[in-house]
């Protein structure tokens, strides 16, 4: 709770909390209510300008922009949460491998990380799309693999610094097993790195969803998502700019909010940066 309070008391943190809060509320709301039913498309009312009935206008098939963007927020949330959880898991697993006592295991982990990292995310997605087709899973898996490995690579120096530290040695001298000592001492050191990287990962997952959907291997046609709203109108940007501006602005604002949130989160959890918060939290 005090972490959220800390974030709230910073300007950029408050902005990010408001945006992310609205996102969650809209997600919940879209489950029960949207201004227009999603299935409804009005063939006589395509590319409509904003009006009372369609506050953001309609797209090329006469679907209500606002309703589809609202429904899309749920899809984005699924993608972001699943990607971050998976990426964190992959990151922790590969960091643990790289700390393995056996030189061979850590060597293999490093080689796998570096090899896979050199494959662009779009290529990973294309390969995954072969068995999976256009699917939300393609977005989640390709992002999680790519960011998870990236996370492992970024966190590795920090982790091995902590792993070879005197305090791990001291913990071993106090009777802790090597594994236990690593778990209790290395993980807390990774939280600041992870919080920043995962928030960037969340933002990039949204961007990747838009990109991959545009390429036709992301969210399948007929499923609401910000990327699909964007890509279905993208070719008409010079004629009907508003239909591209709405999803584009939405994506930008949310991605910025996620990145700011990650920055503030790091400051809040980083024990070196924020001693006061930590002290007050412990003594509470």
């Amino acid at each position: 709770m005090s972490i959220l309070r800390y974030i709230w008391h910073r300007g950029e943190g408050r902005f990010s909390l408001i945006v992310l809060g609205c996102w969650l509320i809209v997600c919940a709301l879209s489950l029960v209510w949207t201004p227009q039913p999603l299935g409804q498309s009005d063939g006589y009312n395509t590319w409509a300008s904003p009006s009372l009935a369609h506050p953001m206008g309609t797209d090329g098939t006469g679907r209500d922009m606002l309703s589809w963007l609202m429904a899309g927020s749920g899809t984005e949330l699924q993608i972001v949460v699943a990607t971050c959880v998976l990426a964190a898991l992959i990151g922790v697993v590969f960091v643990s491998f790289s700390l393995a006592r056996s030189g061979l295991v850590s060597e293999i982990a490093t080689v796998i990380t570096d090899t896979l990292l050199s494959i662009p995310i779009v290529l990973i997605a294309l390969i995954l799309a072969v068995p999976l087709g256009a699917s939300i899973l393609v977005v989640i898996l390709s992002c999680a693999i790519s960011y998870g490995l990236n996370l492992a690579r970024i966190a590795k120096p920090q982790a091995s610094l902590a792993a070879t530290s005197r305090y791990v040695e001291a913990a071993r001298a106090a009777g802790s097993s090597r594994w236990k000592a690593l778990r209790t001492h290395v993980l807390p050191n990774l939280i600041p790195v992870f919080s920043v990287q995962l928030s960037i990962c969340a933002g990039t997952a949204i961007l990747a969803e838009a990109g991959l959907t545009y390429l036709g291997i992301g969210v399948p046609a007929g499923t609401a998502s910000w990327g699909s709203s964007l890509s279905s109108s993208a070719s008409f940007i010079s004629i009907f700019p508003l239909t591209v501006v709405w999803p584009g602005a939405l994506i930008t604002v949310v991605v910025v909010a996620l990145n700011l949130f990650g920055d503030c989160l790091r400051k809040a959890v980083d024990p070196v940066v924020n001693a006061q918060l930590r002290a007050s939290e412990v003594r509470r």
Binding site: S165, R166, Y167, E169, A170, A171, A173, A174, T184, H185, P188, N189, P271, V272, V282
Partner: peptide, 15 residues
């Protein structure tokens, strides 16, 4: 065991 440098042998992130 008591080690040399206490600022290094105590973990900075644990009370």
């Amino acid at each position: 065991f008591v080690f040399q440098d206490p600022s290094a042998s105590l973990s900075p992130v644990i009370p």
